[in-house]
Nucleic acid binder design. Structure first.
Length: 266
DNA sequence: ATGGTTGCGTGGCAA
């Protein structure tokens, strides 16, 4: 089973790119972020015409996550538990950043598509929200661990885990994606028993999943590795491969992110 | 050099 995470940066603007990608690369499961669309306006035909089921958790203008899969998408859950002031206007749970579901193909997986808050500028209220969100995610990740299922949490983490995951770490020291507290919160999830799938396969530097639109960052390979799959031990047992697919980033009118893949089982 | 790019949605924000 092959699973890809892809921040599309606007599903309406990226409909043709995503349709071509589903046809050519054919993931069994696609975990998508930054739909920037309400559920009703998502171009569902992009997925249905390619033979995918689709479950979305959208929001007007910003955020938005989805799971697309060739097999049925079961036991869907939207939103992360534990939002402060849940139900009130402006509460933490207003932002559509988390969707999880079970998919049973040649292996059975609990998959989560997540869009972790960017957090800039840091310090500040947006950074405080990011760190609170990461703690809520840790608590949910711990619950999922206790199920002893194969769990895949894939998405745009907005976290640069190590210095080798950024082209120019010296200019990122104070950035919300790279600050010590951010990396510590990421490690805290790993240390409970989750594995960064890409780093189980590729120890070296220079592998990125995002390049800024500005200053020719992609052509200079000045990027960030911020899109990840964290695997529960049961999922890590099944890991057969992990890689970054750079071709979609080189197309015309691309997302600023590119798909990151894992293969589980044979 | 306080620039540069993109999406959403038609303001200016978020990234």
């Amino acid at each position: 089973m092959r699973i890809a995470t892809f921040n599309v940066n606007g599903i309406k603007a990226r409909a043709q790119i995503v349709a071509d990608w589903l046809r050519d690369s054919a993931p069994d499961i696609a975990l998508l972020q930054e739909l920037k669309s309400v559920d009703e306006a998502v171009p569902r035909e992009v997925f249905e015409d390619a033979g995918y089921n689709l479950q979305t958790h959208g929001q007007k203008g910003f955020n938005g996550v989805a799971i697309a899969a060739k097999h049925p998408i079961e036991d869907v859950r939207r939103g992360l538990p534990g939002a402060e002031g849940a139900g009130r206007e402006g509460a933490d749970d207003e932002e559509a950043r988390w969707i999880e579901a079970t998919v049973v193909g040649d292996v059975a997986v609990r998959v989560c598509a997540l869009y972790l808050p960017n957090g800039n500028p840091a310090p500040g209220p947006k950074y405080d929200y990011k760190l609170r969100w990461m703690e809520r995610m840790r608590l949910r990740a711990d619950e999922l661990l206790s199920t002893e299922e194969a769990v895949v949490m894939g998405g745009d983490y907005n976290v640069i885990p190590q210095r080798i995951d950024v082209a120019r770490p010296e200019v990122m020291e104070d950035d919300a994606l790279f600050r010590p507290e951010t990396r510590e919160a990421f490690r805290r999830i790993e240390n409970m028993g989750y594995f960064d799938a890409f780093r189980l396969r590729e120890p070296g530097p220079g592998h990125y999943s995002y390049w800024d639109y500005q200053r020719g960052a992609f052509d200079r390979n000045e990027g960030l590795r911020i899109d990840h799959h964290l695997l529960s031990p049961q999922a890590a047992d099944l890991l057969a491969g992990a890689w970054i697919e750079t071709a979609p980033r080189a197309k015309a009118k691309p997302s600023d992110h590119t798909p990151v893949w894992i293969e589980l089982g044979a």
